[in-house]
Each structure stands twice: as C-alpha cells, then as structure tokens.
Nucleic acid binder design. Structure first.
Length: 231
DNA sequence: GCGACAG
DNA sequence: ATCTTGTCGC
C-alpha cells in the first residue's frame, strides 16, 4: 500500500529540503529489470492554480502491452512548496503520492514528468518518489535542464548520453521517441536500469513524443483542477 | 554578482 | 507550470 505524505513533517524551507535530499540520496537503487509482460505502468502529472493556491495530481494506470487505461485517480490539495529549480519534488510529490494512494492496484512502474538521477544532487522527483514509496520509477523530461547532450540521429529510437557538465557523469539519455521530432530526456528514477528505462519509454510512445502515461495523466490532472471546488 | 534553471 | 488563435502539414 502507498502511504500519503505527512505534510506536518514536509520541509518548509530550502535548507530543510536540501537536507532531506541528502538523506534520501543514498537510498536510490539505480538498477533493476524492465517490467514484465502485462505489467501495470502508472503515469503521474500535476497542474496548478496559483490564484486559488490549488494543486491537482493525476495517476493513470496503463497495461504496458495494450496501453489501455486500467484505472485512474486524482487528488486535489494546497500547494505545499514553491517552485525552486532542483527542488521540484517538494512541490509536486504530496499531491502525486495522494493520487497514487487512491489507486487500488500497485503499479509495477511509475513514469514521472521530470528527472530522476539527472539532477544536480542525483535526486530528481522520480528518484525521490521511488525512495518514498518503494516503487520502481523513471523520469521523462521535455528539456535538458542544466545537462548537455548532442542531438540524436533523426530516427525514432536513436539516443545520445545526457551528461552533467559539472562532473562529466552520464545521468540519462536524450531519446528520440518520434522520427524527426525533438528528443525527450530519460533518466532512472529508482529500481530500474537506464537501458531498461529507455526501452520502457519507447514502448510507451507509439505515436507521440511523450509517453502515453504522461499524456493521459496530463489531461486528467488539468480536468481535475478545472473541476475542483473552491477551498 | 547575475542569469539560467525539471514543472 | 501558465498566459493563448490560427495555421501549416502529414
């Protein structure tokens, strides 16, 4: 079962958040198998309404083989942390974990919108979510943040290393999910290897640049936010 | 010091 | 993230 986050103990300052990242970082497991056939893959995403101080998260569970939606859940709450680059997890995760906790089945993998190990301190929101819940996770981001990569070959499936210029570490891959379209940036979250993560992302992108999990979660959380009652 | 910076 | 219409192209 997935336990919701206790907001009373959630970091309230940048310093506390940095200390929490330092505590969780050694708990990340950057290896693991690809999900088996028939696995259930969850997509999560969040939408904001700063005017009303509301955040809405969605978790959509898909069958990895058919990409059909098996189950979905949403959660609406107050914004728990400001947006600060490198600390995105503290803003997004409380609502995301609430939405995941409302699923009746445990995902075999969670696909996040953002980074995992591709993070200045190697604890992006995908890795953070994995450590918090014990779930296997990976991150798919639309931009390269502070990392560098060369442009992959134009064919779908082509990739190049995503490198942290600060120390030369390979932190993920720039992956072409559609021929002739901008790549996405894939990194390991928790309990999955990098090539396994890339294979999964390709399996989840039969038609569009972004994974079906992300696309489904994105539209669902926007709808949940629009339909949310005033606080 | 200043700007850039996942969403 | 979010503010936002039409339009070009497969």
């Amino acid at each position: 079962m997935i336990t919701p986050i206790d907001l009373a103990a959630w970091p309230g300052t940048e310093a506390a958040a940095l200390a929490e990242q330092q505590r969780l970082r050694p708990l990340v497991d950057p290896h693991g198998p690809a999900p088996a056939r028939g696995a259930l893959v969850a997509g999560v995403d969040v939408a904001y309404d700063d005017e009303r101080d509301l955040v809405a998260a969605a978790a959509v569970l898909l069958d990895l083989d058919t990409l059909e939606v098996v189950e979905q859940a949403t959660a609406v709450g107050r914004v728990a942390f400001p947006y600060l680059p490198g600390l995105l997890a503290f803003r997004e995760l409380p609502a995301v974990v609430d939405a995941l906790a409302r699923l009746t089945r445990r995902p075999d993998l969670v696909v996040c919108d953002g980074y995992g190990l591709a993070h200045p301190r190697r604890l992006g929101l995908a890795s953070h979510l994995g450590v918090l819940t014990g779930l296997a996770t990976l991150g798919v981001a639309k931009t390269a943040f502070t990392f560098t990569s060369t442009d992959p070959a134009p064919e779908r499936g082509a990739w190049t290393p995503l490198v942290d210029p600060a120390d030369g570490t390979e932190v993920g891959r720039a992956l072409r999910t559609r021929t002739g379209v901008k790549p996405v940036f894939v990194s390991v979250g928790h309990r999955i290897g990098l090539s396994e993560a890339v294979d999964c992302v390709l399996a989840l992108t039969p038609a569009y640049r972004l994974p079906e999990t992300t696309r489904r979660a994105d539209s669902l959380c926007r709808r949940a936010l629009a339909e949310a009652a005033a606080p």
